[in-house]
Design a protein around this nucleic acid. Structure first.
Lengths: 259, 259
DNA sequence: CGATAAGTTGAACTGGCTCAAGTCATGTGG
DNA sequence: CCACATGACTTGAGCCAGTTCAACTTATCG
């Protein structure tokens, strides 16, 4: 099995069908343990082989490295394999406006599909890796594999739902609720990928979080302090630990269920 | 030509190839004058015929009629033929949160694709009509007609871009900028469908606008009054007339280009 | 025509912003 | 490997855009 050769710190959870670490650049879609979150869901083995043939496994990225920049020609979408990424636009007055946070197994870059240009930039928030999927080839393959077409329609639909939830959050809730909802969102997304839903590292800066949530960085900081004082979360710089999940959910009000 | 029989107030702009009024329920996709905005773009005549076969032309709707309700099973997407529609979610505390405004030629209901349930409700803001496109059949047809698949990918991508623009607007701009951006958005969308870009009726109530933009209805009202006082727009209840387009664009700051 | 919903305007209040002054973390060069 | 510089974060104080509450006018529709 080729994937074991360059394996760094993979966890072979099942010897009969080893699934390698998401940081391993040579792992194929069929063996990637993010498969059940990523594009391959609902595909059978032979279909995954076809998908595998068009996926380009990208090199490792460092904090600050770009996946693409606003205005770049759109050619591919990207599946996050490891690390986290933010997307942002630069406003007319030169400010960064954060538009998304992407975790392993999620797909970035769909904002370029309609216009053939990326509408935002995507940058690594920490060391990470990704798979590049040339969109044109994905379209061709989708036309031949109905379940892949369906999967991609659903993936785009999910992005729409996620954006609308974010819009609802930002246009109707107070600062505390927004922060609580963000933490819950990350918590449930981590849960889906079998990571801790109560302890995680939020790689965004306070300024990023503020921009994303439509508040200032000072307000983010104050909210974190307040949540900590009330024993709802423990905040140590970027390390977050949720202490009182029910209280956090009550604060957020919204249902941040799946996504 | 069947479409002339029940024509109500259609404008036959070209006798050799009459394109009927969008309010006419019996018009086929090939003859609909919204064709160049709607799903059929990029399809040839025979492909449009196939599309036509799955499209169900809905009855006329009155103000307040629902296209679908939040939580309903998702089976179709809807193309707006005439009138305008809003989408909204009901929050835990029973408030309506407006998530979208849809004009003729635009597609509503894509938020149900990922989960098979509509994530919001869609309601007519005035008398209108629509085409219903069963999603399952659209998927099947898309797998057979690559250009339709491509068109639908792009349409969904557009919805993603639109939602992200809205998010950016609401999370970073002042009340005045948000209202200005909304007016510009409607203006440019009207322009695309060959309607006046300076005079139009905004069918939403002040409360709807406020909810959509994340401000109170009083603030919306005050902003309208202020814009009127500065001779940027003329506001007569729901009738809006843009007097000073450059000033409005300067106020909005953002580029609301196509959408 | 009268009832009810929609819209306007005013006045007081407040959550989050701005500005400011500091502490703490991170990483680079000597 | 430490020192120091730079960026990230925290906390405080005052201020203001937008909210809330309220009273009123104007539309809409059975």
């Amino acid at each position: 099995m080729k994937s074991t050769a360059t394996e760094l710190h993979g966890i072979a959870r099942d010897v009969s069908h080893p699934r390698s670490c998401h940081a391993n650049p040579s792992v194929s879609c069929g063996d990637c343990r993010l498969g059940e979150l990523c594009l391959p869901i609902a595909l059978d083995a032979s279909e995954i082989t076809h998908l595998d043939e068009i996926v380009k496994r990208g090199r490792a990225l460092n904090k600050g490295d770009y996946l693409y920049r606003e205005g770049d020609e759109f050619t591919s979408i990207f599946a996050i394999r490891a690390g986290s990424f933010k997307t942002f636009k630069t406003t007319v007055d030169g400010q960064e406006q954060v538009t998304g946070l992407y975790l392993p197994g999620e797909i970035v870059g769909m904002d370029g599909i309609s216009s053939n240009r990326h509408g935002s930039s995507a940058v690594a928030l920490e060391t990470g890796s990704f798979c590049e999927i040339p969109f044109h080839q994905l379209e061709e393959l989708s036309a031949r594999i109905p379940s892949l077409q369906g999967r991609f329609f659903r993936l785009m639909g999910q992005e729409i739902v996620k954006d609308q939830q974010m819009l609802t959050l930002v246009s109707s809730n107070a600062a505390e609720e927004r922060v609580a909802a963000l933490l819950l969102s990350i918590s449930s997304r981590n849960h889906r990928r079998k990571l801790s839903s109560t302890q995680f590292r939020l790689a965004m800066t306070r300024a990023d979080i503020g921009s994303y949530l439509g508040v200032t960085l000072e307000t983010v900081s104050r909210v974190f302090s307040r949540l900590q004082k009330h024993n709802i979360v423990k905040v140590d710089n970027k390390e977050i630990e949720v202490i009182d999940m029910p209280a956090l959910k009550a604060l957020a009000k919204v249902n941040v269920a799946g996504c």
